[in-house]
């Protein structure tokens, strides 16, 4: 266990080296953060940084410590050990100044159901130290960004879950904080809203820093610049999406043929490695290295009348990595116990 922790620290220092070349402003730096609930260690010595213009995705199974980490960063929980600095302000020494830089959407949006959307957002704006004359503009801006123009005068308790979630996000960005922390922001939204919120998150990521936790893996691939996977309170994976995409780059093709030939005929094509039967018409073609046999496959299929109707690269999904890592972790701890 001790070894693993050290491994994580090494990992984060690698991160620092990589990022130092980019000369970015560090918005959040978390050092060896731990938090227990009684005897239960929810978060074990996590270290990471967030830079301006970056969207950081937190992934992990339920109870992994994602929400706890976010609560500590936003000052809702005190850390048991470790340090959190926000825009170079220590969260424990200067909580007020540090918190002014943060917008937080908890798992359950903190809404006052008896208020109308306008009243609620006005209150949040004032709460976050927006001067009186700037409140109306901040509220309009937040409403417009979250698509709430139509519901300003409605009671929050009468809104649907999706709209309530949007009000929660509006609340988190109303004072245009440097850091926006969103705990599962797309839960309960319909697909269109999810797309809107994702593009909103991307937009926020341009000039703020965003931390986002989610269970939905494609969401991370679509919106984040960096991914961190937390499992059982430990950082088990941290890398940029680009590196991740390289790791997840295609090594297999899905081929759909109406009249599939024998496997030997397929393996005879240069570049094709193994052939796997998915069902009567679908084959999974594994290949190695950079030689993508898609083109030659298509040529053969047309010439030999195999009835080609589908040919697509298969991505080794983030899901796969996630499952691999977290499952491996569980095995390790199982052995340890």
């Amino acid at each position: 266990m001790c070894l693993k922790v050290r491994g994580n620290i090494d990992f984060s220092t690698n991160e620092d080296e990589r990022n130092s070349g980019m000369t970015q402003e560090t918005l959040i730096s978390v050092e060896h953060l731990s938090r227990h609930y009684g005897p239960l260690m929810a978060v074990k010595s996590i270290s990471f940084e967030l830079h301006r213009g970056e969207v950081l995705g937190f992934l992990g199974p339920n109870g992994a410590g994602k929400s706890t980490t976010m609560q500590v960063i936003t000052g809702n929980l005190a850390p048991s050990a470790g340090r959190v600095r926000i825009c170079d302000l220590d969260l424990l020494d200067k909580p007020r100044a540090a918190k002014a830089h943060i917008g937080y959407l908890p798992e359950q949006p903190p809404l006052y159901p008896d208020f109308t959307v306008n009243e609620y957002l006005r209150f949040c704006a004032r709460l976050n130290q927006i001067p009186r004359e700037g409140v109306a503009r901040a509220v309009d801006n937040a409403k417009q960004r979250c698509g709430l123009e139509q519901v300003g005068k409605r009671l929050i308790s009468n809104l649907s879950k999706g709209f309530q979630q949007r009000v929660g996000i509006a609340q988190a960005i109303i004072h245009t904080p440097s850091v926006v922390v969103l705990d599962e922001p797309t839960v309960g939204l319909d697909p269109n809203q999810i797309r809107e919120i994702r593009s909103l998150i991307r937009e926020l990521g341009n000039d703020h820093g965003v931390i986002l936790s989610t269970h939905i893996l494609p969401e991370v691939q679509m919106t984040c610049d960096r991914v961190q996977i937390i499992n059982q309170g430990e950082l088990v994976f941290a890398d940029s999406i680009e590196n991740l995409n390289q790791r997840t780059s295609t090594t297999s093709l899905i081929l759909g043929l109406h009249q599939p030939p024998a496997d030997t005929e397929l393996t005879a094509i240069p570049g094709v490695g193994e052939v796997e039967h998915i069902d009567a018409e679908y084959r999974r073609i594994h290949y190695t290295g950079d030689t993508n046999p898609a083109e030659t496959l298509a040529e053969h299929a047309v010439n030999k009348h195999w009835g080609l109707f589908e040919l697509k690269p298969e991505f080794n999904s983030l899901e796969q990595i996630f499952v691999d890592i977290t499952a491996a972790e569980q095995d390790n701890t199982g052995e340890a116990a």
Binding site: R96, I102, E107, Q108, N128
Partner: peptide
Amino acid sequence: RNKTLALLFSAPVS
């Protein structure tokens, strides 16, 4: 109970 305390805790108020 409604978890709205988080709003106050994460705002710059003591």
